[in-house]
Nucleic acid binder design. Sequence first.
RNA 1: CGCGGGGUAGAGCAGUAGCAGCUCGCCAGGCCCAUAACCUGGAGGUCGUGGGUGCGAAUCCCACCUCCGCAA
Length: 313
Amino acid sequence: MDKPVKIVFMGTPEFAVPYLRSLTADKYFEVKAVITQPDKPAGRKQIITPPPVKIVAQENNLLILQPEKLKDNEEFLLKLKEIKPDLLVVVAYGQIIPRSILALAKLGNINVHPSLLPKYRGASPIQNAILNNEKSTGLTIMLMDEKMDHGPILAQQEIALNGTENNESLHQKMSDKKSTDFLIETIKKFIAGEIKPQPQDDDKATYCKLIKKEEAKIDWQKPVEIISAQIRAFYPWPVAWTTLNSKRAKIFPPVKITGGTDEPGKISAQDDKLIVAGQDKMLEILELQIEGKNKVKAKDFILGNHISGQYFK
RNA sequence: CGCGGGGUAGAGCAGUAGCAGCUCGCCAGGCCCAUAACCUGGAGGUCGUGGGUGCGAAUCCCACCUCCGCAA
């Protein structure tokens, strides 16, 4: 390659940041523009906050575009055309990308999706792989077409799960050095013509929707494996919760599954340990937070509250 | 002006006008083959900050700082 490959990068959350960093660090590429979601109000005070990708793009003095919408946005489309990108790389952008934009890049449009497609197409592949207690999941690098997570696959990398991962740790794992290297190597091989894109088997496709907060309420009538999966899948957002004396109690990972049974939801403080019964076994909680209070370790919680024999509902 | 709950010993909490407490931890000593067990004693607090009311304020009033739950 005599000239660097001109890339337009689209991405928004923390997950996309390592990918952007690795692309900007590689001389083979030149990131001509970063497209990310507009700054949005966040937190209790609703302070306008830039997305993580924007912050990193600013640090690297990259051109940043934050269109409200992509569809029928002539002004935005013109700017992209001026750039004449060779490649569009999309990592967790957060919006459907219309055909008019997919038509721009000369070499193609590449997407990183954190599941082994065609399984878990859609918005929350990592959470759902954990929720369903999958034995493994992975990363897929694919070419985009106009259907969601539907395009032909360039390469996949499997990641084994052992039942202790939470949403945050898996996100980190899927954007670590190995993962970003995987993207870069795949792009290079693809441009060199060494990869033949493989169409997905649509019959095997499964879909996952955006996580809703209601799904994070714990039902103690369920088996503890399911409750444990919920607690891990919903950390750090929206965080699995239950109630104690009509107050909301967030339950944080990790939790330990232990033997024995009791009435579902019943709490017992055994020494320093906070044990709650599920449908079939017991769950040891290590960290929790009552509304209005800070997060505390189970041991500290037991000391200040005599709760043995009460129920989570 | 979105709604709401907190800030008290190193930790977690109780105390809502009248001597600042509980559990754990910590220090010293005792018991014991021994211990995270048990017994005895001890240290450790400007009760978030500033002002106000009262004979008297952790407690009531006002302002501010700060942490957090909901909502978005």
